[in-house]
Structure formats: structure tokens, C-alpha cells
Design a binder for these strands. Structure first.
Length: 574
RNA sequence: CGGGGCGUAGCGUAGUGGCUAGCGCGCCUGCUUUGGGAGCAGGAGACCGGAGGUUCGAAUCCUCUCGCCCCGACCA
């Protein structure tokens, strides 16, 4: 039983000056956490109980799925991370240190290497697979900018799992098992979330999804179709390729468009000279880039920008992309800045990538590769060819859902989980093989799966709080019931004490406000701030033999007979 | 790393060259009070982030430095 008279807790009347987002503000005010340094927090009793409740739920679901818990050190020698090149990849985000002998160590940002090596050292047969291991561990990342309290910290608690399979199909099954376990976990944690397609990135994986908890203070932007539920990372958003009939389109025609190096200036001149209500969307923007030293053109409708992050994510194998600079134009005199068109791409040695909106048969206004002139009626497939379609245009709210064509919305969210088919990259780098039934060694294929545990505390606080305080789902609240005793004589305190132990006997955790010196107002405010789901007030109503039962979330209040209080609480919590 | 803001008691803050750094909350003592952050009286608590400088005199001006928050880049 948590007794407020002795609980190590000091709630704050004012918002802390250095906290802006609700979860941070309230977790500090209600005495759950305290900041030690940027992105580094201490957990006070209430916070630590809440954190451990989340861990418990996760553990129960992981165990139920048949995954086995292990535990690695956070402090590790760098060797394995060097072999997988992650020391370089993480760069300054990696916390590094030396021991007294000058040996290189790091504080682990995540543990793929160690799990891979552990399995390698214990197992060597296909008969041992599939296998899924997990741990709940403190991770360290020296973030360039920690922010939003414990949403993005430099030290944080993460549940990370890894699956090991012989075959791609096995990986798919392990992945789906984790996906199901995550759904159960987040449902129990009382979170609202969307499962969002993500890019697997350059790590060679094939499938990846993020669990995103929608919330205005979230730092992830994603696309959501409110009609069919399609959800995707901006990078992973798909655009449906259409087709157009170009048989009636007149022949390509080059026209003078003096002084029109930008889309806006071009549209103005077109409408002045030809009328017809041209818009940026009728023009074709040719963005020239250098991808790993090779010149490429990316075509997008004139009213959209190229989203470099999307482009990069969708061009696997390409390491570095940059925009054309003046020096590049100087080296390629045929490419006239502001008047580039794809018609002569072959001549210029350009590989032409295009957004799917530049569909076969569609007709565009684009540069004529000559200063101050553009070409009209430039038809895809007739007047130029596209080497490859690639998702590259910026995504906007209102774009068509790839599944049902409904306009999508763009929303913000906190990433609370990420599941990821890693494939064989780590196993390859660290030489994790098992002998197959034919006696030949096979490289194991892996998945990695993460839940931000400490972040979940903040994410849940963000999603559930109201103006007066925190408001936890029962499963993770620091107590199920908060009993407040008020009055000046002993009776309500004795009654509250009895009621508390009665409720505890029913298996519900109780917080009891047994402070004799605090005024009722203070106790009510504290109870609301702390956010335990059921608040029972033992006080004034006692003269009629009643206590007041309040539901924190709804504010609903009712008076019940003292004798019925415990069963009423049980009923409200079920 | 670029841009912006801020460091004064546990928390929130006032104080822009001049007396002993002020107030509210919280904390301690006493009395009163006890259903919405009680009242009165008394009290403890601050090397004004740090270093250096200017000045008869610096929380206040200057230089450097450390830290924190926000936006972006980055990360996921």
C-alpha cells in the first residue's frame, strides 16, 4: 500500500519552466520523474512503479508468445560493433568510453550484435531454430537534440527482441508472431496506435512496420487513410501509377518562354501567351541530382518538390544523393538551368527517374533544353522515356490513398514500437551460420523488434492526460484505487484504512492519502494530478454511512454505502 | 551543427550600476482551520550557473565558458 503520509513524493503546484509537452510537464509536477541532465531522468517511486507496470505487461506478452528473456550488459567492448560497421554508422550518437587500460568500450545503443554472437556461440544446428530472444535494457544514444522530456532521451529503456530463422518463410512467421504480440501488448497498455508501413532502409531488410501512437506532440509524420485504415510513413507512402490516352495529344511544340527559370514564372508566361489556365501541376519539374557520382534526373509535377529523404529511401543501394550545383551545370553545358527537359536525357547521359504521377501517356509542359524556351505537349512514352519510376515527390494531405483512393490525412505520432525483418546482414557480418539437414552451413536470417518502454510512459501520458493531470489506464497506473481520507477526527482515517486493506485483499493495489495535515483541497488536487483511475473519498458522506467514488477519466461521481464500496470499485475497474 | 530563448532558495518568479537580493508556493515552530491547492504569527533556506574583467561599488555592464529549453538539421 502506498501511503501518502510517507510516500517519497512532492507534487509541484506550478509547471516546471523547462517542460513544454504535456507528458513532461505532468510527470514532473506529479512527482514521477526528475531531470538530471538533457535527456537523462531519474524515476521517483510513482514513476518507477508505472514504468515497471509497463515492463510487466510487455514481459507477460513476450513470454506468452514463447520468446525467452535474457539480459546483456549496457557497457560493451566496441569490437562487435566495429565488425558490423555500426561504430561508423552511429558516429557521434554512440556513447564511447575507455577503461583504465585504454580499451575501447561503448554504451550500447541497441544490441543486434550481442544477440547474434550469443546465438552463434550456443547454437549450430537448424534443429535449434526458430528462436526468439528478448531483453529489457537501458540503451544509450548521444542524441544531437534530446527533447520532449522522456519522449526522446539519451538514456532510455527499451525492450528489444531478435528472431533467428533458417528460411525467409520462417522469418516471415517470426515477424508475424512479434507483430501479434505487439498488438496484444499495446492494446493492454491502453494505447491508441496505428501500424504503419516503414521503409526497411539500407540495412537489406525486406519488411518493416512501425507502431505509431497518434499525438500532436509526436515527432513522426505519417500518412493515414481514415476511410480504409491504410497508414504509412511518408517515405513508404505509395502513389498509384495511372495511364493516360495520348492519341489525341498534338505534337510536341517548342515555344518561347523568355525569363521563366521557375515554375511560377513559367505558369504566368504560359497563361499570358496561351491562356488555358495552366497551373504548376501541368508542368514537369526536372530535378537534376548526383547519385553516387552519377547524374540523374528526377521528374515530378511542377507543383511539388522532390522529397530527398523519400527519394533516397526508395533508391536502394544509393549511398549519397545531392542536388546539382553550378559546377555540375558547368560540366554539362547541354543542361540549361531552369529549362531542362527529359527529351534529350539519353544524349546527356542522364538516368531518368520519375514520380508515378508522370504516368505513361500523360502530357506536360517542360523545358526545351534551350534557354528561354519550353516544350508543350510533351508526352511520356512518345516524346521521352522514363528509365524507372521511383517515389520521390513530396507527400501532401489530400493525396490519394493507394488502396481506396480516399484523400489521406497527415498526422503526427510517437513511435512506440518498430518491427523489422533484418535479413542476413548481421548474421553475415558476424558469421552466424547453422548446419542445415544436408550438412551445409546456412546463414541465419534475423528480425529485430523494439518497444520504447520508458517512452511508452510518456506516450501514454500524452494520450490520456487532461487539463487537471495524468489519467492512467488501470493496467499501468501506480495504483488502481486512490483512497482519500478527509476530516479532523480519527473516524474517516480509520474507515479509509479498513477500506484500503479490504480492497487490497481483493488483489487491487491501493494508494491511501492518510495525511492528517493536508487540507481536502490539496488531497483532491493531488489525486487528480497523480491520475489513479478510481478515487474513493472517505469524509463528509460518512455520516450517512456513504463514501464517494469517482472515476478519474470521466469525472463521474457517485455515493455508495461504505459496505458496498469495495465491490463498486471492483465493478468500475472490470 | 545552424537559428531563437533562458540560467536568481526545492519549485515558480521580481529585481537593468547604489543600502541587508524581494515575493508566492513548498519546508520548520506555535495557535486556529479541515469537501476544492486554509488563516495568523514567527523561522530556516541563495557564494544571483562558473571564470575573468570594467568600476569607489556588479545579480545588473563587457569577455570567455558551462548548462537548460524551443525550432531546424540529425536520429528513430
Amino acid at each position: 500500500m502506498l501511503r501518502m503520509s510517507t510516500l517519497f513524493l512532492r507534487t509541484l503546484r506550478d509547471d516546471p519552466a523547462d517542460a513544454e509537452v504535456a507528458s513532461h510537464r505532468l510527470l514532473v509536477r506529479a512527482g514521477y520523474v526528475r531531470r538530471i541532465a538533457a535527456g537523462i531522468y531519474s524515476w521517483l517511486p510513482l514513476g518507477y512503479i508505472t514504468l515497471r507496470n509497463i515492463e510487466r505487461v510487455i514481459r507477460e506478452e513476450m513470454d506468452a508468445a514463447g520468446f525467452q528473456e535474457v539480459h546483456f550488459p549496457a557497457l560493451l567492448p566496441v569490437d562487435a560493433y566495429q565488425q558490423t560497421n555500426r561504430v561508423t554508422e552511429y558516429g557521434p550518437n554512440l556513447f564511447r568510453l575507455k577503461d583504465r587500460k585504454g580499451g575501447d568500450y561503448l554504451l550500447a545503443p541497441t544490441h543486434e550484435e550481442m544477440f547474434t554472437l550469443m546465438v552463434k556461440s550456443e547454437y549450430s544446428s537448424y534443429k535449434d531454430l526458430p528462436l526468439s530472444l528478448y531483453q529489457i535494457q537501458t540503451k544509450y544514444r548521444d542524441e544531437a537534440r534530446p527533447r520532449s522530456g522522456i519522449i526522446r532521451g539519451r538514456e532510455f529503456v527499451m525492450k528489444d527482441s531478435y528472431s533467428f530463422d533458417l528460411t525467409d518463410q520462417g522469418l516471415e512467421e517470426s515477424y508475424n508472431k512479434h507483430r501479434d504480440a505487439y498488438i496484444k501488448t499495446f492494446d493492454r497498455l491502453g494505447m491508441r496506435y496505428n501500424i504503419v508501413s516503414a521503409m526497411s532502409g539500407a540495412m537489406g531488410g525486406s519488411r518493416s512496420e512501425e507502431f505509431l501512437a497518434p499525438c500532436p506532440t509526436g515527432e513522426d509524420t505519417y500518412v493515414l487513410c481514415e476511410s480504409c485504415g491504410y497508414a504509412a510513413n511518408v517515405e513508404a507512402m505509395k502513389t498509384v501509377i495511372g495511364h493516360a490516352d495520348s492519341s489525341a495529344t498534338p505534337a510536341l511544340k517548342v515555344v518561347d518562354t523568355p525569363n521563366t527559370p521557375t515554375i511560377d514564372s513559367l505558369v504566368n508566361v504560359l497563361n499570358e501567351k496561351f491562356g488555358g489556365g495552366y497551373t504548376g501541376a501541368d508542368t514537369l519539374k526536372n530535378v537534376l541530382l548526383v547519385a553516387d557520382g552519377k547524374n540523374i534526373a528526377v521528374l515530378v509535377p511542377g507543383d511539388r518538390e522532390v522529397d530527398l529523404k523519400r527519394l533516397e529511401a526508395n533508391l536502394p543501394g544509393v549511398l549519397e544523393i545531392r542536388l546539382f550545383e553550378d559546377a555540375d551545370f558547368a560540366k554539362n553545358p547541354g543542361l540549361v538551368k531552369g529549362y531542362v527537359g527529359p527529351q534529350d536525357a539519353k544524349k546527356f547521359g542522364l538516368t531518368v527517374y520519375a514520380d508515378p504521377r508522370i504516368a505513361p501517356g500523360t502530357s506536360w509542359v517542360t523545358g526545351a533544353n534551350k534557354k528561354d524556351s519550353h516544350a508543350l505537349n510533351v508526352v511520356v512514352g512518345r516524346d521521352f522515356t522514363i528509365d524507372e519510376y521511383v517515389e520521390s515527390a513530396e507527400v501532401r494531405a489530400g493525396d490519394a490513398c493507394p488502396d481506396c483512393a480516399t484523400p489521406v490525412v497527415i498526422d503526427r505520432a510517437i513511435e512506440i514500437g518498430h518491427i523489422f525483418q533484418l535479413g542476413r546482414m548481421y548474421a553475415q557480418a558476424l558469421d552466424l551460420t547453422v548446419l542445415d539437414s544436408d550438412g551445409k552451413p546456412r546463414v541465419v536470417t534475423m528480425g529485430s523488434y523494439g518497444i520504447g518502454v520508458s517512452r511508452a510512459v510518456a506516450a501514454i501520458a500524452e494520450q490520456t492526460h487532461d487539463e487537471i493531470g495524468l489519467c492512467w489506464p488501470a493496467e499501468i497506473a501506480p495504483a488502481k484505487v486512490h483512497i482519500v481520507a478527509t476530516g479532523k477526527d480519527d473516524n474517516p482515517f480509520n474507515v479509509a484504512e479498513d477500506l484500503a486493506s479490504q480492497i487490497e485483499k481483493l488483489g487491487l493495489s491501493v494508494m491511501l492519502d492518510d495525511r492528517r495535515d493536508a487540507s481536502p483541497g490539496v488531497k483532491f488536487k493531488d489525486a487528480e494530478l497523480i491520475g489513479v483511475p478510481i478515487i474513493v473519498i472517505v469524509g463528509k458522506a460518512l455520516v450517512e454511512g456513504n463514501v464517494e467514488v469517482r472515476v478519474r477519466r470521466t469525472g463521474e461521481r457517485s455515493e455508495v454505502r461504505l459496505a458496498d464500496a469495495a465491490s463498486e470499485v471492483v465493478k468500475l475497474l472490470s
